[in-house]
Design a protein around this nucleic acid. Structure first.
Lengths: 85, 85, 85, 85
DNA sequence: CACTGGAAAATGCCGC
DNA sequence: GCGGCATTTTCCAGTG
């Protein structure tokens, strides 16, 4: 291990980790901004943002329910020795 | 315009908007998961997650401070124009 | 316990809780109104409301910064105890 | 007007205003904390906080409706030349 | 009166 | 498994 400067293996690792996180958070921020833009654009086309949000939330609920049903199916399939995947 | 089914221009627009939002939210969810993974991996390498989060937050805070300083500058310019104090 | 009417211990408790909350929310609303009044009065004395708000926010920010510094101190103490880096 | 130090009439006024606002905001903060405490205490007594919030919100809606009705009454009273207050 | 920004509430996550 | 905390979303006051 070199002691030149204040770097260390752990220090480099730390820097790498922090930068990876920051890059991902930037990405996330951009996606969030994109979503906001879509809502704004929809609003410009006469849609009510609040209602849109409700619709999206409801569809998400439905999807969750669907996934749950699928999980049930998998569970039962497994129980009878029929592994679907 | 066709009247087959229940489609309509507005309905198609709505569907498009909702689907765009859902795709973006999926993307966001994936990025969030990636961030979580990085934290988990770092933890596996001996880093403390809480400390990492703090470091990331602090670096963001610094950035915010720069922005705030700029805002102050603008404010003072305005205040001077008003001959406030 | 009396069974006259629909009251019950839980019902009375619920009523009490709700009323306490409502009284406090009224109080809060009054304080909010008072703050608004102070801003209005200050405006009448030639102060710019927006600037005043900024000043108040900045002073709060400074306080937050002090608290944040303390949190950092605690964190580092913890991190050293962990022999983190 | 004295020029000793950096004080000025406007400066003193500013300080006074800011301090009044800060005191009121502290008060508001305390009331908010009190409300939180009531919810926490209620939770300790077996009440569901989320449901409590819904109840409070609903009663508020009812009150608003009542106030609206009163406003209507006042309006009509005024229209027929009968000033209630 | 619509929009933006900041406070409050709901949700999800981590540690115990 | 749950309580506390951080994040996210929702809501409301202030602004132009």
């Amino acid at each position: 291990m070199t002691v030149v400067g204040h770097n260390s293996v752990a220090g480099d690792q730390l820097r790498t980790v922090v930068e990876r996180i920051e890059r991902l958070e930037d990405e996330k921020k951009n996606v969030t901004a994109d979503i906001k833009d879509v809502y704004a654009e929809a609003k410009g086309n006469g849609f009510d943002a609040k209602t849109l949000r409700k619709i999206v939330a409801l569809r998400k609920l439905d999807e969750d329910k669907r996934k749950e049903a699928q999980a049930m199916l998998d569970l039962y399939a497994h129980a009878i020795g029929l592994d679907l995947i």
